[in-house]
Design a protein around this nucleic acid. Sequence first.
DNA 1: TTCGGAACGTTGGCCTAACCAACGTTGGCG
DNA 2: CGCCAACGTTGGTTAGGCCAACGTTCCGAA
Lengths: 150, 150
Amino acid sequence: MDHAAPQSPAGLRTTPSWLLNQAAAHAGRLISAGFAAHDLRGYHYRLLAALTESGPASQADLGRRCGIDRSDVVAAVNDLAGRGFVVRAPDPADRRRNVISLTDAGADEARRMTDTVARVQDDLLAPLSSAERDELTRLLTRLLEHHSRG
Amino acid sequence: MDHAAPQSPAGLRTTPSWLLNQAAAHAGRLISAGFAAHDLRGYHYRLLAALTESGPASQADLGRRCGIDRSDVVAAVNDLAGRGFVVRAPDPADRRRNVISLTDAGADEARRMTDTVARVQDDLLAPLSSAERDELTRLLTRLLEHHSRG
DNA sequence: TTCGGAACGTTGGCCTAACCAACGTTGGCG
DNA sequence: CGCCAACGTTGGTTAGGCCAACGTTCCGAA
């Protein structure tokens, strides 16, 4: 936390990709700090959120849903299973797959992390009015939609 | 370039910190791709931009200006000096320091990279109108300003 | 004037997020 | 049946950022 105001070259300071990078980096620091209390990280939260929303799924499905690589899902699920937030069971209908399901403790943790995330958003967006927050969300969503449709 | 539309959990899809992260990741991919043609990376461009704007500086100064760690500046300056884009000379007025100066070739390369960056911005912001681009820039700038003042 | 702390460049490390290749297993389809 | 695709898993690599330590050099306060 040096906040030594990295006053990058002026040319960069007005470059959207640079601004995005810096803003995302800052958001990431806030998120990390928030998640540290849970001793979990972004990966874990994304998986818990996906499971909360859509119920049990295979690891490959989870990876696709969360934009996480198959191989990274393995490690994250290991962690979550080790803490009892998730159960990994072979899929009887397709023995290639594991079915990952949320436990009660996992559902609780997901709720707590969601609260943490909400608090971080408030912190992150503090300088913006409610309308501006919506506008920012809208613009970013448009950007991502455009770039995710081949 | 899979653009397999990472359709993250809906809860995440509207979370600003997540959107920022995703948008920045995409911008980063575009920037990296653009810089690959120069066989240089973000670090190098930032340094060249700072030197172009403010003239010769010590490595520590450059690091502070660009938000790059001292130790990372060393490696980046090594690269740039090895390609003749930059000259590293001891500061006669303070023998602890090196003065880094742009060569003519370095100034040229900086211009070319600036062009590349501009092209990437257009690509990145394609779905947004000019007014929307300004609005996005404004919002992100406000965010960063707020969070960089202790 | 000396002495202690601060800044400098440098080395060497460590961590996170992301991605990729390969392998053996399993499923499904021609 | 035979082949290809999907699955989970292991074991990498990369870029980016950060930190600790060291010897050198500078400077200000005793």
